[in-house]
Amino acid sequence: MHADDSDATPASPRGLAALLGPAEVRSLAEEFGVRPTKQLGQNFVHDANTVRRIVAAAGVGRDDVVLEVGPGLGSLTLALLDVVDRVVAVEIDPRLAERLPTTVAARAPQLADRLDVVPMDAMKVSIADLPSQPTALVANLPYNVAVPVLLHLFAEIPSLRTALVMVQLEVADRLAAQPGSKVYGVPSVKARYFGDVRRAGSVGRSVFWPVPKVESGLVRIDRYENPPWPTDPGHRKTVFAAVDAAFAQRRKTLRAALSGWAGSPAEAERRLVAAAIEPSTRGERLDAAAFVRLATIGTEG
């Protein structure tokens, strides 16, 4: 992994956890009868140095409650427990959810009571499902659902202040893209609705088992301390509907692309002008603040 943010300060590890290597990962998978599935987007990290660097880039420490999604065999979980005082692991695979506490107890017995496992789909998790309120999300997200899971958790868990997630490199680029970029789109805008987004490093394929066909990237999101707009579900739904409409036909001007959303091309133009947006521009030129202005113009005026 080559960290983009060289000023990340590693947290001071307890050094109590025996981290997993390639042999241990394969042995545990065989013992548990686990065959990584493409359907669940499972690729297990087996490099101890990589998980330590992920934890360091996350910037978490003693006071953090970390939410981990898809802990798998426990590679990242063990590294997190070495640094933070509680990890809440959400695992959809019932076999892995059942076995994770056993792995932690065997490899870090002094830290075992700091782990909570929630056996459910992360896309259905709400704050009420969790035994404590997480302050940070640190996870190797399943590639096939990474963006929906990330946005869902920021929407449902207001206590999350930061996120450091590993996703497919292409997805990392999209999430962190700036307006005007060729890869700037729906994920870019929606992630920035919640906070500041930036790339935080790259991860090679060789640290995973099985080896994926794509490279991976790290993305960090810091939730706005003082949100520049309302954060209620109704407001978010209104803004996201405008974002979806603008990028559904991204080659079209906003006047044309938003005609269905607004009711007509003329109404789309009226709202764009009222939001101080040139109707002939395209969605890829607008930042999150512009989409918020546009979406909340409504039908008045």
Rank of each mutant, 00 (worst) to 15 (best):
A3P: 09
A8H: 10
T9L: 11
S12T: 12
A17W: 12
P22L: 08
L28Y: 13
A29W: 02
P36C: 08
P36Y: 07
T37R: 12
K38N: 07
Q39C: 02
L40K: 07
N43T: 05
N43I: 03
H46R: 05
T50N: 04
R53K: 14
I54Y: 05
V60I: 10
V66C: 14
E68P: 11
V69W: 11
V69P: 08
G72M: 10
L73F: 14
G74V: 10
L78F: 13
D82Q: 12
A89R: 14
A89C: 15
E91T: 11
E91L: 09
P94T: 14
P94W: 13
R95D: 15
R95S: 14
R95A: 15
L96R: 10
A97C: 15
L100E: 12
L100S: 13
P101I: 12
A108Q: 07
V118H: 15
M120H: 05
D121Q: 02
D121L: 04
A122P: 01
M123E: 04
K124F: 06
K124E: 13
V125P: 00
V125T: 11
S126C: 05
I127W: 10
D129I: 08
P134Y: 12
A136W: 10
A136N: 04
A139Q: 09
A139M: 07
N140R: 02
P142T: 06
V147D: 00
L150V: 09
L151D: 04
L153E: 08
L153K: 10
L153D: 08
S159A: 12
S159R: 10
R161H: 09
R161Y: 02
L164A: 11
V167S: 00
L169G: 01
E170L: 01
A172Y: 00
A172R: 00
D173L: 09
D173A: 14
R174N: 11
R174F: 08
A176G: 11
P179T: 11
V183S: 05
V183Q: 03
Y184G: 01
Y184Q: 06
G185R: 00
P187S: 09
R192D: 03
F194G: 03
G195F: 08
V203G: 00
G204A: 08
V207Y: 01
V207N: 00
V207A: 01
F208R: 00
P210M: 04
V211I: 14
P212A: 05
P212V: 02
S216N: 02
L218D: 00
R220L: 10
I221M: 13
I221V: 15
D222T: 15
Y224T: 06
N226S: 14
P227I: 12
P230E: 11
H235Y: 10
R236F: 07
A242E: 01
V243L: 01
D244T: 02
D244N: 07
A246G: 13
Q249M: 15
R250V: 11
K252G: 03
R255K: 15
A256P: 04
G263A: 05
S264C: 08
S264F: 08
A266C: 02
A266Q: 15
A266E: 15
R270F: 02
R271I: 00
V273Y: 01
P279W: 01
P279M: 02
R282W: 13
E284R: 09
R285H: 06
A288K: 01
A290C: 06
R293Y: 04
R293Q: 06
A295I: 03
E300Q: 10
